[in-house]
Computed example of a mutant assay.
Amino acid sequence: MFREIIAEEVAKAMQDFRTTQLPPMLTKKQLMELFNIKDTKASQLLNREDFPVFREAGLLIPTHLLFKWIENNTRWINENTDYFKKGVTA
């Protein structure tokens, strides 16, 4: 369920991203706005071992690594679930 929520929010964020320029490093607040998530879910993401966080200068998320992380996790969903196949007719 968590991965489905993230996939939906990423899709929404990608629509907004096309019209918005993002900074090279995101704050937690910017991440929350981008993914349209609350503090608890953002904290869960930031505490994952595989989530890209730069802690040496505070708590920052490198934007380019965030999008690589999204691609890697979306690829996992594609290969291991039928989430993106729902609603597709052949």
Rank of each mutant, 00 (worst) to 15 (best):
L22C: 04
L65T: 00
K68C: 03
L22T: 10
L31F: 09
G87I: 09
F35P: 00
Q44W: 10
A13L: 03
T40G: 02
N73H: 15
R55T: 06
M25F: 14
F17H: 06
M25V: 11
I6H: 05
W76D: 12
N73Y: 09
M25Y: 14
N78C: 13
M14H: 06
I77Q: 10
N47P: 06
L65I: 00
A11H: 05
K85F: 13
L26D: 00
T19C: 08
R3S: 02
T89M: 08
Q44Y: 15
E4I: 02
E49M: 11
T20L: 03
F84D: 03
R18P: 01
I5A: 02
A13N: 13
T20H: 07
L60E: 04
V53T: 08
L34Q: 05
K41H: 12
N47Q: 15
T89G: 05
W76A: 05
A13M: 13
P52R: 10
L65R: 14
A90R: 13
L31N: 04
P24C: 05
G58I: 05
I61F: 00
R48K: 12
E71N: 01
M32A: 11
F2K: 14
E49H: 13
T20V: 08
F67L: 04
M1L: 08
L45M: 11
A90P: 15
P62T: 07
N36Y: 12
I6M: 15
Y83V: 15
F51W: 08
K68P: 02
F35R: 04
P62F: 01
Q21P: 04
T63H: 08
M1Y: 00
S43D: 15
M1R: 04
E56K: 09
L59M: 09
Q21F: 09
R55H: 10
I70P: 06
D82W: 11
G87M: 08
R55N: 13
I5Y: 02
N78W: 13
Q21A: 13
I77S: 03
N73K: 09
R55A: 11
D16C: 06
I5K: 03
L46M: 15
R75F: 03
E9C: 06
R3F: 04
H64T: 04
F84L: 12
E33G: 01
T81E: 14
F54H: 12
K12C: 10
I6D: 07
Q30F: 07
P62Q: 02
I5L: 15
E71C: 05
T19N: 11
P23C: 04
F54L: 07
D82C: 10
F51G: 05
L59C: 12
F2Q: 01
I6A: 04
T81Q: 06
M32R: 06
N47G: 14
E71S: 12
N78P: 05
F17C: 05
T19P: 00
K85S: 09
S43A: 08
A11K: 14
F51K: 12
L22Q: 02
M32T: 04
H64Q: 14
E79K: 10
W69Q: 07
E56R: 10
I77F: 09
A13F: 10
E56L: 13
W69S: 01
T89R: 07
N47S: 07
T19R: 03
M14P: 02
L66V: 00
T89L: 11
